[in-house]
Design a protein around this nucleic acid. Structure first.
Length: 491
RNA sequence: GGGGCCAUCGUCUAGUGGUUAGGACACCGCCCUUUCACGGCGGCAGCACGGGUUCGAUCCCCGUUGGCCCUACCA
């Protein structure tokens, strides 16, 4: 009776991995991890026209990059392999083994029936009903008696299969986030569970709502956590569970993520695919945090997180604190500014070793040849950046001497008074931070100048512009020889 | 059209039948400072509207408006 918690994320490979999907996956993952359960990745590729292997790879890679590891599911990049006892985890590979027998069973038990209505039939009937100002429902209302429900057709002619839905009463969904939602049975009609097959007979490819239920039952999913755009599908699925005689899992429908203008998050709001966020230089940990905090308010001892410090939860804290009861019912707008803030904070908190593998992707090949202590310094002095891309930008001066110089800066800082000082700097040999500082103090005092004057002039010579990491770090990163070469041109 | 969901600062949100309606991000200002940043301090700003219930509603009920979802042999 004490079944382990099992959640699943079931994307359809019809395009990029959407940020909203990642959030749903994250909630499933957090919930499973919190309860020591299993998290399943299942690919819903029954949309024959849009599903592709490339899209499946994109999903696998996106999930892996986000750190959402799955206990059961496909082996990334290997279509014919999977881990877990309930495979395969791609629906098209489960046709003959799972779905068709399940459809046949319902047919045999009289809970479903073959429907020979063609699309054209249905369209004509729909038009007729709508012309009368009514809502079309298959075999109901004005369409009553026109469907195939009681015709008892066999499979001798290719036919779709419809589920017999209850005609009265309410189907109620006990949602862990939304509460109880009742759907009048008479608002639903007999829906198609299997499409018309191409061949002469048999059973066609089952539809989404059917496969989901068969899979969730087979995979022993205990908690169906998904986007609330599925709320209206749930009564159909509940009826199917009933037809099969299976217990219902718990349902939790998480609110949508909207764009800044309140419309559904789409391409025109900027980035929607997880890959784009990766390319913008966000840390996966920041994506997880930002996504989790959309619609979810962590409570510490019953009190919502308050300070900025508390907002910056680690994965371990999120897992420990996660509770569906603290998930909002309403949709949330995606706030890029907050993501950037979180990203910056997490960059500041991370060790250089944690950042390096992510930062490397934004670096030129020369990065790889640098020793660890150099990388450590380079990362430490750019951890003020908002994202990895910006950090990489701060280090551009390391890879090539500047070829262009900021005119205003040259005019302002490359004064005649500073040149003799620059000559003394070139002669310096000890580049340890404290040694440089001591030497600078001595030189500056002798010339009656301020550090600012020297530092800015050096920045112009070294970087071509008056902006760089702290000047002693900048010099150390370049090394004595390179500093001498770049400054030498000005004296 | 029908069905469903939702509604506190610009954004994410806390919250209670009586509160100066709290926090975070953003924004603005000041401070710090070797540049850019970081950081510190402070400030601006909100209960969608209309009815009820009540001594009293941001909170409870109804309605309106608005937003989103579903309404496929898509998922």
């Amino acid at each position: 009776m004490n079944r382990p918690i099992v959640t699943r994320f079931a994307p359809s490979p019809t395009g990029m991995l959407h940020i909203g999907g990642v959030r749903t996956a994250l909630f499933c993952w957090l919930f499973a991890r919190k309860h020591g359960g299993r998290f399943i990745l299942r690919v819903e590729d029954t949309d024959l026209t849009r599903s592709t292997d490339d899209n499946i790879r994109i999903i696998e890679a996106g999930m892996a990059w986000c750190g959402l590891d799955w206990d059961e599911g496909p082996v990334a990049g290997e279509p014919s392999r999977w881990v877990g006892p309930h495979g395969p985890y791609r629906q098209m590979m489960r046709m003959d083994s799972h779905y068709k027998p399940a459809v046949q069973k319902l047919l045999d038990e009289g809970k479903a029936y073959r429907c020979r209505c063609t699309r054209e039939d249905i369209e004509a009937r729909r038009a007729a009903v709508e012309a009368a100002g009514k809502v079309f429902q298959y075999n109901r209302g004005l369409d009553a008696g026109k469907g195939c429900r009681d015709k008892g057709f066999n499979g001798s002619i290719p036919a779709a299969v419809r589920l017999k839905m209850p005609e009265s009463g309410d189907i109620v969904l006990h949602d862990l986030i939304k509460g109880d939602i009742a759907f009048p049975a008479d608002s639903l009609d007999d829906w198609i569970i299997a499409r018309t097959p191409d061949g002469a007979d048999g059973i066609g490819v089952p539809t989404y709502n059917f496969c989901v239920v068969v899979d969730d039952v087979d995979m022993e999913v205990t908690h169906v956590i998904r986007g609330d755009d599925h709320v209206n599908n749930t009564p159909k699925q509940i009826a199917l569970y009933a037809a099969f005689g299976h217990d219902l899992p718990a349902f939790a429908h998480v609110p949508m993520i909207l764009g800044a203008d309140g419309a559904k998050l789409s391409k025109r709001h900027g980035a929607t695919s997880i890959t784009e966020y990766q390319a913008m230089g966000f840390l996966p940990s920041a994506i997880r945090l930002a996504l989790a905090r959309l619609s979810w308010t962590p409570k510490i001892d019953g009190r919502a997180v308050e300070t900025a410090e508390e907002e910056l939860l680690t994965d371990a804290e999120m897992i420990q604190l996660f509770d569906l009861a603290d998930v909002q019912k309403s949709a949330a707008r995606f706030d890029m500014a907050k993501l950037e803030w979180m990203n910056q904070k997490l960059i500041q908190r991370a060790t250089w070793q944690e950042i390096e593998p992510h930062l490397a992707a934004f670096m030129p090949d020369a990065w790889k040849t640098k020793p660890d202590d150099w990388k450590a310094k380079a990362i430490q002095c750019t951890q003020k950046g908002k994202n990895l891309k910006e950090m990489a930008g701060f280090l551009e001066f390391c890879w090539a001497a500047p070829t262009e110089f900021d005119e205003k800066a040259v005019e302002k800082f490359m004064t005649d008074a500073i040149k003799p000082v620059l000559r003394e700097v070139v002669a310096l040999e000890d580049y340890a931070h404290d040694a440089l500082e001591a030497a600078f103090n001595r030189i500056l005092e002798a010339h009656g100048l301020k550090l600012k004057d020297l530092a800015q002039a050096l920045r112009v010579a070294l970087c071509g512009k008056p902006v760089s990491p702290p000047i002693f770090d900048t010099m150390a990163l370049l090394g004595r020889e390179e500093v001498a070469a770049r400054v030498g041109k000005w004296v």
